[in-house]
Amino acid sequence: MHLVIGNKLYSSWSLRAWITLKAFDIAFTETVIAMYKPDTRERMLAFGPTGKVPVLVDGDITVWESLAIIEYLADRFPDKAIWPANQAARAHARSAASEMHAGFTGIRSSCPMNLTKRFAPRDRGPEMAADIQRLQELWREARERFGGSGPFLYGEFSAADAMFAPVVSRLDTYQIDVDGETRRYMDAVLSYPSFVAWRDSALQEKWTLPHYEEGETAVEVFHFPETA
């Protein structure tokens, strides 16, 4: 299997596919294509029909969207329990993942994924506040109904956690005020070995996207690129 992704420092959709492969010990190779370069779209079109990433190539099969990649992996490796085994938990997890895929536009627009720094808290508007409230309600429901004794939304790490991993990073990066239960879940994701592996690799990248942090005040810096 071959996964084509964007900058690990910034590409939230790429993280979702990558962390699923890594978490469930599925062997793959990767190609990282730098975003916002003159040849970015051309390079991405060489792998998938939309000129976007992630793209998974498995022999003569090409899957070019993150949630579709996760579903393909769940079908391809039914023994991996990528989705929760319990039917009710699995239905809830798929609904939550789809809600993430289609919604939370306030978080997306106000807080792009950025692993280079941590930024000072500030008011990000009512749409962002509404998204945070809904996000915490959704996570709390999953944890209370299906979390059991595990640290993740449905107990063990699943595709739902992969879908929400970039949001977890955003809440941490922008120091969004959340309740204690939400923070404990965030800490579980941020310390999960597959996420740590992504972040460690991201911090080795040599390029940055300054427009991703316009209007922000950095309070911690984690990435010191040799070249921009």
Rank of each mutant, 00 (worst) to 15 (best):
I107F: 01
L209P: 01
E141F: 12
G215M: 09
L138I: 12
E226M: 06
T208G: 06
F152A: 02
E220I: 09
Q175M: 12
G155L: 05
Q175V: 08
M44L: 14
S191H: 08
S98T: 15
T105P: 02
A202D: 13
V57G: 09
I70M: 07
P121I: 02
D179M: 01
F24L: 12
G215E: 11
G6Y: 12
P126T: 04
H2A: 09
M128K: 11
P78I: 00
A162S: 13
E71F: 08
I33Y: 08
W18I: 00
P193H: 10
L73Y: 05
P126A: 11
T173R: 03
P151R: 00
W64Q: 09
E144W: 00
H223W: 03
E141M: 11
R94I: 05
P78S: 02
Q175C: 13
L203Y: 05
Q204H: 10
S109T: 07
R122T: 15
Q87C: 07
E65C: 08
H2M: 11
F222E: 13
D123V: 06
D60T: 06
S201D: 14
K37H: 07
T40K: 04
T182D: 00
E213K: 09
Y174G: 08
D123H: 06
D161Q: 04
S194Y: 04
T116A: 15
T182P: 00
L171A: 00
E213G: 08
D200G: 03
F119Q: 05
E65N: 06
D79E: 15
